[in-house]
Write a protein that binds this DNA or RNA. Structure first.
Lengths: 213, 213, 213, 213
DNA sequence: CGATAAGCGAGACGGTACGTCCAGTCTTCCA
DNA sequence: TGGAAGACTGGACGTACCGTCTCGCTTATCG
C-alpha cells in the first residue's frame, strides 16, 4: 500500500546526484556545451560513468537536469499595473537568458548565441521524454504570468478577444526568437518596446489614465 | 573596374556544390540530423570529402547551407487588410515549420520536435559566423512582412506606439517558441488566435465591419 | 612481494591481441606494407579501432609487434665446428629474410626488395621507443650466435684479437646490407663465401685439416 | 639523325631541378622524412607541383635524387697498408652516416636512428627502378674500395680464399646493420675493432711487414 | 551470520564520425 | 609545350565521445 517499496541491495548514494549535477554545471559554464563530455563530468564529480548512467540515460538528460536545476524561480508580482508587471517579469527572463549566453562558449561566441537553450531545444527534439519534460517545465513556469494576464482581462484591463496564453507566447516568444534565431540583443529597452507594442491601445498606460476616463 | 579577380588554377567544379547540397538534403530528410554524416553525404554526392570541406569548413556549415537553400520564398501580399495578410503569412511559416519537423527524425520524434531548427540555432551558437549568417538570412526574410506592418501603421491602421519589428517578433516568436520550447502545436486556429490577440483593439477586424457599424 | 598489481576496471580482452596481430599478419602478407591499413586490420580482427589503438599507439607499433611475433627462433647449434655452425645459422637467417621479401608487395616488387625490414628500420628511426624495442629484440636474438663465437675463441679456434660481436656484425650485416642496400641476392653460395672470407686464415676449415698438419 | 631531337614548345626550366632538390634537401634536414611533403617542397622551391612531377614520378624518387646528390665522393687512398686504408675509408663512411642521422628528426630521434637511409631502403623496396638505381649507385661507389682489396690480395697481403666483395660487404654491412637494425653507435673505436677483426690473422699489421722485408 | 542483491569505481569495448593530411592527377590560363 | 595555381579523387590517420560491458569491492537487507 505504501508507495515506498523495500529496496534491497546497496542503496544509491544520494549525494552523487548533487555532485554530478554540480560538476556538470561547472563544466557547462567553463567549457560550454561542446567540450561537455560525460567522461569529463564523471571524472570531475569523482564518480564512475556507470553511476551517472544509472541516473540519467543520456547525455541530453543530464544537460536538461542541470538546466532544470539552474532554473531559478522568476517571481511574479501582481500590482494591478499589467504593463509594469509584464515589463518586470520579462526583464527577469531576459536577464536569465543573457546569463545563459555565457554558458555557451566562455569567450568566443558568448555574445552572439544561446548555445544551451538551443541544445535543450535540440535535445527535446531528439528525445520525446525530454520534450515532454521541457514542455511541462515551461508550462509550470508560465502558469503564474499567464494567470496574471487572465486576471487583468477579468479586471477589464484587456479586451475579451485577447487570449492570455497567446499573449504570453508573443512576449516570451519574441525574446527566444531573438535569442535563438535572429541573434538580436534583448536589453531593457527592447523589453519595454515589446510590452508597449503588445499592449498598445488595449491596456491603459498608467493608472492615472483610468481615473481620467 | 571589374570586380572579377583573375582566377588562377583549376576552377572549382560548380556543379559539385549542387550535388553536395542535394545529397545533404536527401540524407537530412531520410535520416534526420543525427545519422547525418559528412562521409555519407560525400559518398552520395560522388565527391571526395576534401572537396566538401574545401567549401564548408564544418558539418554545421553544410547543414546551414542546406537549410538556407531549402528556405523557400514565403510570399507577402499586401491587400490592405493587415489582419488577413498576417494570418496568411504566418500560416505559411507555420506550414514550413511543420514541414521541417519531418526532417528531424522521420518516425520516432518527428511529431514532438523541430530538430532541425533547434540544431540550426545550436550551430549558430557554436560558430559565430553561422550565427551571423543565420541572422542575416532571417533579417532578409523578415524585411517584407515587417514593411507590411510599417505601411499599415502609416496608413493609420496601427497606433504610432507600435514598433513594427517588435510586433513581428511577437508573431514569429510565438510560433518558434511553441515549436522549440513548449512543444505546443501551431495549427491554423492558433495562428488566427495569435493575430487576433496581437492586433486586438488596435486594428480594424475587417474593412467590412467598419461600414457595418 | 607479489609483482601482481591490483587490477581495476574491466580487464583487457587478452584474445583481442592475438586476433589483431593475426589479422595484421594476414594483411601484411596479402597486401604488403603499403595497403596495410589500421582500419582493415581492425575490421578483419573484429575489433574496434579504439581497442587496437589502446594497445599500440601507432600503425608502426602494430607492424613491429607483428614482426616481433613472426620472429621465429633461429636455432643455434654448437658442434665445435665454428665454420659449419655459422654457415648453418646464417643460412637460416637468409632464408627468413628471403621469406620476408614476399611480405613486401606480393607480385610487383617482391623480388628486388625487403620492404618489411626496411619499413621496420624506418619505423625504428621515426619512433625512439620502437628503435629501442627493435634494438633489444635483435640483441636478444643475437646473444646465442655471439656466444658461439665467444666459445670458439676461448677454445682457441679464433685469435684473441677477434671481437666476437664485431665478427657477428660483419656476418649478419653483410646479409642485411645486400638485402636492403645493394639488392644483391643472398643465396647459399654467398653465405658460404661470406663465412669463408670472414674466417679465412683464422679458423681451421675442417677438423680433418688439423690432423693433416 | 642527331640524337638531339628538336624540342617544340616551351623548354624546361633547367634551374627548376636545382631549386627543387635544394628545397627538398632543406626540408629533409629541417623536418626529417616525415613532415616531408611534396606540397611543402614545391612551395618552398617556388615551383608548381606539376613541374615537380614532370621530373620525378614519385615522392620516393625525389628523395632518392636528393640523397644521390648529397652523396659526396668518398676518397679512396691506396697506401699499400690495407688495414689503415680500410680504417680511413670506413671512418669516412661512418661519419657520413652519422651526419645523416641528423636528417631524421632534428631533436628527438636523431640519435637513435637513421631515418633517411631506412626510407631509401624502403623506397628501393617499393619501386623496382629505385631499387636498381640505388643498387647501381652503391655499386659505383663501392668499386674503388673493392678494387683496393683486390690489389691487396694480388699483392699477397690477403689469402686467395678471401672474396674481396664479400669482405667489403662485411665491413660496410656491419656499419649499416648497426645503423639500421641494432641502433648501436658506430664511432672510430668500433671501426678500428671492426677492421681488426676482419683482417685478424690474414693481413700483416704493418710493423711485422717491415721486419719481414 | 551468511546469502543475496544492488551500487559503485575503474576502465575496456564496440561503434561511429570527425576533420586533417598527403599523394598524384587534372584543368585552366598564361608564357 | 612548359609552368603556376590550385581544385579534385581517394584513402588513411589518429582522436573523441557515447553508451555498454565486465570486473572486484562495498553496503545494505533478508532468511
Amino acid at each position: 500500500m505504501s508507495a515506498e517499496e523495500k529496496r534491497r541491495g546497496r542503496p544509491r548514494d544520494e549525494q552523487a546526484d548533487g555532485r554530478i549535477l554540480d560538476a556538470a554545471l561547472e563544466v557547462l559554464l567553463e567549457n560550454g556545451y561542446d567540450r561537455f563530455s560525460i567522461d569529463t563530468v564523471a571524472a570531475m564529480a569523482g564518480v564512475a560513468k556507470t553511476t551517472l548512467y544509472r541516473r540519467w540515460p543520456t547525455k541530453d538528460h543530464v544537460i536538461v537536469a542541470v538546466v532544470a536545476k539552474m532554473q531559478d524561480e522568476v517571481p511574479v508580482v501582481d500590482t494591478g499595473d499589467l504593463r509594469a508587471d509584464l515589463v518586470g517579469y520579462l526583464t527577469e527572463i531576459a536577464a536569465g537568458l543573457n546569463r545563459m549566453r555565457k554558458a555557451a562558449r566562455s569567450k568566443e561566441a558568448s555574445d552572439r548565441s544561446a548555445g544551451l537553450v538551443a541544445e535543450i531545444a535540440a535535445a527535446a527534439a531528439r528525445h520525446p521524454d525530454i520534450g515532454a519534460a521541457v514542455g511541462q517545465l515551461f508550462a509550470r513556469r508560465n502558469t503564474l504570468p499567464i494567470s496574471l494576464i487572465h486576471r487583468a482581462r477579468e479586471r477589464g484591463d484587456l479586451p475579451q478577444d485577447v487570449d492570455p496564453e497567446a499573449l504570453f507566447d508573443q512576449l516570451a516568444g519574441a525574446l527566444y526568437y531573438r535569442l535563438l534565431i535572429t541573434g538580436n540583443p534583448i536589453g531593457p529597452a527592447y523589453v519595454r518596446t515589446l510590452v508597449g507594442t503588445a499592449l498598445s491601445g488595449i491596456s491603459p498606460t498608467l493608472p492615472v489614465k483610468r481615473t481620467t476616463s
